[in-house]
Amino acid sequence: MMLEVQVMTTIYVNPDKKHDQIVKLSDGSYGVMKAKKEMAGIAYQFNFISHQHPGFVISHAPVNGDVENVDSIDGKQSFKIAWRS
């Protein structure tokens, strides 16, 4: 029986920037967080430069310590949100 090892990657978000910003990941790679208007309010889209991480959207403002679980073609990935200044 094979155990699936799931690595959690931390996304460092500047809480003072409420809209678009460049984010850094704990593995040293970078991405972009963009705020986008939706019918239910503002959603936040994360896209990453490294192809090893899938992009995803959350329907709420990023919260320090939250974990987002994302299904991708390579399996589940978990991302933890952490504040940075």
Rank of each mutant, 00 (worst) to 15 (best):
residue 26 S to Q: 11
residue 41 G to Q: 13
residue 34 K to P: 00
residue 28 G to L: 04
residue 72 S to E: 12
residue 43 A to K: 08
residue 39 M to I: 11
residue 68 E to T: 03
residue 48 F to Y: 07
residue 40 A to S: 15
residue 73 I to Q: 11
residue 70 V to W: 03
residue 54 P to S: 08
residue 50 S to E: 11
residue 44 Y to R: 00
residue 70 V to Y: 02
residue 22 I to A: 07
residue 42 I to A: 08
residue 59 S to V: 04
residue 36 K to D: 04
residue 14 N to E: 11
residue 30 Y to T: 13
residue 66 D to F: 06
residue 15 P to N: 15
residue 55 G to E: 09
residue 14 N to R: 03
residue 38 E to L: 14
residue 22 I to F: 06
residue 8 M to A: 12
residue 45 Q to F: 10
residue 63 V to E: 06
residue 21 Q to M: 04
residue 58 I to H: 09
residue 76 K to P: 10
residue 63 V to N: 09
residue 62 P to V: 01
residue 52 Q to L: 13
residue 21 Q to G: 11
residue 45 Q to Y: 12
residue 69 N to E: 13
residue 36 K to A: 03
residue 42 I to K: 04
residue 52 Q to M: 13
residue 68 E to G: 03
residue 40 A to E: 12
residue 12 Y to G: 06
residue 35 A to V: 00
residue 62 P to A: 00
residue 21 Q to P: 14
residue 43 A to P: 01
residue 77 Q to R: 15
residue 10 T to L: 05
residue 67 V to G: 07
residue 42 I to D: 08
residue 15 P to W: 03
residue 16 D to K: 15
residue 24 K to I: 00
residue 43 A to H: 15
residue 1 M to G: 04
residue 26 S to T: 04
residue 57 V to L: 08
residue 52 Q to S: 11
residue 18 K to S: 09
residue 37 K to N: 08
residue 20 D to W: 08
residue 19 H to D: 13
residue 26 S to Y: 04
residue 67 V to P: 02
residue 42 I to C: 06
residue 70 V to Q: 02
residue 73 I to R: 04
residue 7 V to L: 12
residue 41 G to W: 09
residue 25 L to A: 14
residue 41 G to E: 10
residue 31 G to V: 01
residue 25 L to I: 05
residue 36 K to G: 04
residue 47 N to C: 10
residue 56 F to R: 03
residue 75 G to Y: 08
residue 29 S to H: 13
residue 24 K to L: 01
residue 71 D to N: 15
residue 34 K to N: 11
residue 34 K to V: 00
residue 9 T to I: 00
residue 60 H to P: 07
residue 41 G to L: 07
residue 2 M to K: 02
residue 41 G to S: 09
residue 14 N to F: 11
residue 60 H to I: 07
residue 71 D to C: 13
residue 64 N to S: 06
residue 32 V to Q: 01
residue 39 M to H: 09
residue 77 Q to M: 10
residue 20 D to G: 14
